[in-house]
């Protein structure tokens, strides 16, 4: 179960509103490589993971992604607060505004609402860990692209923090996979017979 902590993982304090920028950053909330997809992907992959080390990293990274989801939402909220009608008319934010006002709704920058397909749970330790490594890199690229689109230091600082965490997660997933492979070479084989053996090892400490 989860308990909410009343704090952001890293502070978000944005002086100037910028609805057009919010319109692209929202992809890290509800887009294909966003924090909602990341958190649910990792937390749902845990149930079929046979090794405690992998369950641990998925639990802890998945929980941290929930904190990142809140940070992205805080950025969206602050970029769209105290808007006048003139701030919205004729900007790319107008289309979002007409559907959601200034509510925070999970949607991609391209306008596609969040799609659960991106949870990507295969139920196979190697397939899922490789998925996660790719997911962290794709999220890192999205943050790189956001940094290309803004000069506002108030926005750049929390985005840079989030970008750095994608790299840290990528490294931890990679190390977990490597540790697992060195301790249990069969885990690297995609052969169904070996997979069956891995599942039987549930709860067995390496």
């Amino acid at each position: 179960m989860w308990i909410y902590e009343k704090k952001l993982q890293y502070p978000v304090k944005i002086k100037n509103c910028n609805p057009a920028l919010a319109n692209v950053i929202i992809s890290q909330l509800g887009g294909p490589d966003g924090e909602l997809g990341a958190s649910m992907r990792y937390l749902n992959q845990r149930y079929s993971m046979p090794y405690d080390e992998v369950v641990g990293i998925l639990t802890d990274v998945g929980s941290e992604e929930l904190a990142h989801l809140e940070m992205v939402a805080a950025i969206i909220h602050q970029l769209t607060r105290n808007l006048s009608e003139e701030d919205i008319k004729g900007t790319p934010f107008a289309a979002y505004f007409v559907d959601h006002t200034t509510g925070v709704y999970p949607i991609a920058a391209s306008g596609v609402p969040f799609d659960a397909k991106i949870f990507a749970v295969k139920g196979d330790i190697i397939a899922d860990l490789h998925e996660d490594l790719a997911a962290e890199q794709k999220a890192r690229v999205t943050y790189d692209n956001i940094l290309r689109l803004t000069d506002d230091p108030d926005v750049r600082e929390p985005i840079k923090f989030l970008r750095a965490r994608e790299i840290a997660h990528y490294q931890r997933f990679g190390e977990t996979k490597r540790e697992l492979s060195s301790k249990s070479p069969n885990a690297e084989s995609p052969h169904p017979r070996n997979h069956k053996r891995i599942n039987k090892l549930s709860n067995v400490r390496m």
């Binding site: 405690d52 369950v55 400490r205």
Partner: peptide, 8 residues
């Protein structure tokens, strides 16, 4: 990280 985890 010691199992069993809560869903086991």
């Amino acid at each position: 990280i010691n199992g069993p985890w809560p869903w086991h």
